[in-house]
Design a protein around this nucleic acid. Structure first.
Lengths: 344, 344
DNA sequence: GACTACTGTGGGAGCGCTCCCATACCTGGG
DNA sequence: CCCAGGTATGGGAGCGCTCCCACAGTAGTC
């Protein structure tokens, strides 16, 4: 009836070949300890001989678990952020899931319609859990997913005291490290180009910047703070405003490499040399940073490791949701690291 | 027994509520025409009232189709290529699949072990078809997948006369356009940094370069050809070799932006100005190209559109494999476009 | 008026598993 | 020697769909 899939062996056939019952084969496949060594090897041989592979749909139906998780990336974000970010997240998630023998369902959401479709398929029980990347402060999706009874792990948080399990990097530490470094280079009029302030990640980096100034005994100065939006053009605009307001600034901490690139081009147009006149530091340590002229000092986040951690946490949650009781929401904050190059 | 999934309505319940049989509800859900208008609306109401969503596992088991396709990306490649490439492919694929209500299973393969695991899960009938990105000349995977009876579409081809359906960009045209442009700028000693020549894409771009020279009446000169590997460092090495061999060169066509970036840094170290002394052209029109100093002239590929096309073709193939007979292998070659910036 | 030819509908039979109860066999303690 | 308390195993009963056959009803045909 269907062209393909014709001759795939079933559990039943393996059982017949091994001279045992269906249940026993199932136990062997699933690694149950209640099987004698002898039987186990007999079944293993039959499996190998027939080239048996369990049918996933049947497993999912009978066992009500899919061995798949969804990774959701809001499309608007994918354009804002330095794009390699998401590839690194995907890489980490993928590696960890492969090790746990789980599949990765990738979902880019680019419209309200697609968002609803996504909720539909969660309800269709296609996945055992959900990973959500780069959520905005007011995003209701994490809570919606939980209402459906599915485990969730966020990449980044929506607010300081996030209630949903998440993996974040130390964004406050990133801002502090950048400022401390610039101070160490003898700079004292240090400006910052922030991300969109409705995102926690942007507020946290700004907070770190301020903390860094305070720790260095430098006075806070709101004239040295200009809001960007994580895009190159946004960085450009913010940099222009800063030069207007504080022509005497001698350093800039941009909350992303891409914005730093925008800032750099404005500085060039304005005849400011980097790093001689203005030192520049970004965040992400992306390809962009390495290729800039001069190469950009940047705060590295362990993005791939964040992906791995997210996957591990989610697998945990999935386990517990079917076994043990829940406990306090899990959270992981991974350290960042300053990579010094020629721009500072 | 399972915490979640408890109260989801089933087909049966919808049928009861609508006062019809199970088969009828199934027909409505699947849009069969053999249902009276009256019944259809009654069922639709019951579906809405109960918030019914078909269980995907049950559908897959009974209907032997999954409404999911796999996108496979060899991990080694993901590092070589300018990374945004894959995000754009993913974007295009994802958009087209979403429109067709199909799920995207993303698989990064980074080891022989993972490759085998992948073949396992194809056999587990988790997907209806496979998209394969950036295959090498000797990659047996496409044929393996076909042996399993699954439709495949490649991104790029392994050889000129590829037998498996594929979507490629006009790489020969890319090389020709680059050379024609450089000739138009008055350059006559035009070198090229190629990709790894075991990949068709690299050979095709090189072929285009040669064709471009011929068309301009310039003599071919193997001393002006240097092999890279699509990495920045590879571009650097290749550029050094070129400067050694032909110090008088006045233009370089690099087969990728990332290699162009490597070449650019070597040129800077060697004191050659871009574009005054040496004009530079890359391929990909990636972020890297825009951020370079000077911004890089580059041949743009419609990457996202390639992703879309791949998805459309695969959906086609899936349809036909369960309905009609096969026909000649499908192939699509999308046009490239030169984006002129300050480097040439 | 009986026959064929639809259209619309109900529901049995499975898809290939997992779950779990029942059974068979094997210990060792009283 | 009997019985509790293991351990290993078989196989029935679903999981929630799709497929398809059967059948009722309504026309249209000679």
């Amino acid at each position: 009836m269907n062209g393909r899939q014709s001759g795939r062996p079933t559990l039943e056939q393996v059982a017949a070949r091994a001279g045992v019952g269906r249940g026993t084969v199932s136990r062997v496949i699933n690694g149950s300890p209640r099987v004698s060594e002898q039987t186990r090897t007999a079944v293993a041989r039959a499996v190998a001989e027939l080239g048996y592979v369990p049918n996933q749909a049947a497993r999912a139906l009978a066992g009500s678990r899919t061995d798949a998780v969804a990774l959701v990336i809001p499309e608007t974000e994918a354009r804002l952020f330095a794009e390699p970010y998401f590839l690194d997240i995907i890489r980490g998630v993928s590696a960890e899931l492969a090790a746990a023998d789980k599949q990765l369902l990738l979902t880019l959401i680019r419209s309200e319609q697609e968002r609803q479709r996504f909720e539909q398929y969660l309800a269709a029980q296609r996945v055992d859990g959900v990973l959500l990347a780069s959520v905005h402060g007011d995003d209701p999706l994490p809570d919606r997913v939980r209402e459906l009874g599915l485990p969730v792990v966020l990449n980044g948080r929506r607010v300081e005291a996030e209630r949903v399990p998440y993996v974040d990097s130390d964004n406050i530490g990133a801002g502090r490290a950048a400022v401390a470094h610039l101070v160490g280079r003898g700079r004292s009029r240090i400006a910052t180009v922030t991300g969109p302030l409705d995102m926690y990640v942007a507020r946290a980096r700004l907070g770190g910047y301020r903390a860094g100034l305070t720790e260095a005994g430098l006075p806070p100065d709101e004239g040295l703070v200009s809001a960007g939006d994580f895009t190159e053009e946004g960085g450009r605009r913010a940099m222009r405003r800063l030069l207007d307001r504080r022509p005497d600034l001698d350093a800039v901490f941009a909350a992303s490499d891409v914005m730093a690139a925008g800032a750099r081009s404005v500085l060039r147009e304005a005849g400011r040399r980097v790093p001689e006149d203005v030192a520049l530091v970004g965040v992400d340590d992306s390809t962009v940073a390495r290729l800039m002229d001069p190469p950009l000092t940047s705060v590295r986040q362990p993005i791939e490791e964040m992906g791995r951690t997210m996957a591990r946490m989610l697998i945990q949650e999935i386990h517990e949701s079917t076994e043990t009781a829940p406990e306090e929401p899990r959270r992981h904050v991974l350290p960042t690291e300053l990579v010094v190059r020629d721009s500072s």
